[in-house]
């Protein structure tokens, strides 16, 4: 089975590519290839700066339940080679930004799903990555937290970062995107700049594109 086929794109700082597609379209596989988690059989994927430049949010939080929020962040900061002298400050900053500072000393396993997801986002931002790869990042966030996260992503894009966001829900993330791709059975059936279109228009284009492709 071919999970990805004929997918070609490049992104510069400040661009946000939103990839929409049904379950099984290959969105996660594409992000994993970009993150270096899967080696493609053919072709290549290059991220400037390599793994250290990537902030990765997968389907799971990648957090250790019996470590506190702060301990988790300090551990990941060390792995991402944040200088030892600035780790504590950096952890405090992302916790503040994600609204989880008051939970810093709580073990992750006692957190609600929404708080755990915020901590997972804080984990991905701890090293100030230049590239963010987000796989269904809104899962588990309530409406307010999702709105805050969208605002945060807008800020990050404004700071010149590249964001690649994959979701099956066109309603989420469309307003953040500078570029939009629709993926089906491993292929991009649509890839274009968003060009100021509203999320509803993107949703219409999505239905048409996947309808044309036989969905």
């Amino acid at each position: 089975m071919v999970a990805l086929d004929d997918v070609t794109f490049s992104l510069q700082g400040g661009q946000t590519l939103a990839i929409f597609g049904p379950n099984g379209a290959g969105k996660t596989t594409l992000l994993k290839v970009l993150a270096g988690l899967i080696r493609p059989d053919a072709g290549r994927a290059t991220v400037a700066g390599g793994r250290g430049a990537i902030g990765w949010i997968g389907h799971q939080s990648h957090l250790y339940g019996h470590l506190t929020v702060r301990e988790n962040l300090l551990f990941w900061a060390a792995l991402y080679r944040v200088p030892a002298a600035s780790r504590a400050h950096r952890a405090a900053e992302v916790m503040q930004r994600l609204g989880i500072a008051q939970h810093a000393e709580r073990p992750v396993w006692v957190l609600s799903r929404g708080l755990a997801q915020r901590t997972a986002i804080a984990r991905a931002l701890i090293h100030e990555p230049r590239v963010l790869l987000l796989d269904e990042p809104f899962t588990g966030l309530d409406l307010a937290a999702a709105a805050e996260f969208r605002a945060l992503l807008s800020q990050l894009r404004g700071a010149g970062r590249v964001v690649v966001l994959a979701t099956h829900n066109v309603g989420e993330g469309a307003e953040l995107a500078t570029d939009v791709a629709f993926q089906r059975r491993g292929r991009f059936v649509y890839l274009a700049p968003r060009g100021g279109r509203a999320p509803a228009e993107i949703a219409d284009a999505y239905r048409r594109a996947l309808g044309d492709a036989g969905e």
Binding site: A35, G36, G58, S61, Y64, G65, R81
Partner: peptide
Amino acid sequence: ENDALEGLLASPL
């Protein structure tokens, strides 16, 4: 737990 292994493999470790 929470697929921490995937996080480790995606990191520069």
